[in-house]
Design a binder for these strands. Structure first.
Lengths: 154, 154
DNA sequence: CTGCGACTTCAAGTCAACTTGAAGTCAAGC
DNA sequence: GCTTGACTTCAAGTTGACTTGAAGTCGCAG
């Protein structure tokens, strides 16, 4: 297992070097030494980055993800935590399905404007009551920002 | 239609006064005058707040929501935008379902650790490739912060 | 041995949607 | 008419996950 230069890791993983440094500061990944100033990572860092990506996709915060790697090294992920997250996702999915259906209805609703559409009104009341959870409690996909550009080398 | 004091709007809608001011600054709602310093809102502001909550729940940004209220007043929501959003939600839902299934499997997977579970490995590769969209492109539920307390008046 | 360019550090900026804090104002009750 | 307390404004802070910028360092080609 030869070590990889940070630039190499960035290229192979598609994760920007700045992010790799950020992750290292956070303790999510570890470099194995330096060549001059340049961080050298063990090849296993690529697996680790995949796991981090998976955790992020599942909606875990970086801090939570760092807990999944026990202090020593390998994952040992708490199965209960996974199940809990699955349940949360389930709830979010149900909300999103309701919302999607509502939107689709509203999009093709024959009523002249939405204030006369009972389906829309129902949705409206649900939103006002918080049942649709405008501000996620922890549930949804993470952050969801309006799209910075994301280059993927390759 | 008698006007409502900001405190009254806050009480009836459950939206904090600070948020109401913030929304007014943003142009999402409008006060009708003042009693002393206190903003007076028309009763219709409550409907408006519901609509805002709905928009937020559907994943629209405040700026997008403000576009839904034409300069004059009433909604006139672009149906095409709703359909587009529904499609985006659909994609997100599919990703989340995949993720939920993966998590559930991993939670009860008999393999001694996850590095030996093929289902987990498949999920891992999907995440690494970005197919699961760790950083939402716009899709998911909004912000999803780790839960500030949220009081809901009666 | 010099120049270059890719790395380094560290602080600060970004984004969205609010919240918080300090300092001020005003209507109403006593 | 003075206190009270709920409002007001405006600026700055918060959170999470990064990115950006300035200034510095280092290995290597020439």
């Amino acid at each position: 297992m030869h070590d990889l230069d940070i630039a190499e890791v960035a290229r192979q993983s598609g994760v920007p070097a700045s992010t790799l440094r950020f992750y290292e500061d956070k303790g999510l990944i570890a470099s194995h030494g330096r060549h001059g100033l340049r961080r050298q990572y063990p090849a296993s860092v690529l697996d680790r980055l995949s796991l981090i990506a998976l955790g992020r996709a599942a909606g875990f915060a970086l801090d939570e993800i760092s807990l999944m790697f026990a202090t020593d090294g390998r994952p040992q992920i708490d199965r209960k935590m996974l199940a809990t997250r699955a349940d949360e996702l389930d709830l979010t999915i149900r909300r999103m399905v309701a919302m999607r259906n509502g939107l689709r209805h509203a999009a093709k609703c024959p009523a002249p404007n939405h204030s006369e559409c009972p389906t829309f009104q129902r949705l409206l009341r649900a939103a006002a009551s918080g049942r649709l959870g405008a501000r996620g409690e922890k549930a949804g996909t993470p952050t969801a920002r309006p799209t910075r550009d994301r280059k993927k080398s390759g």
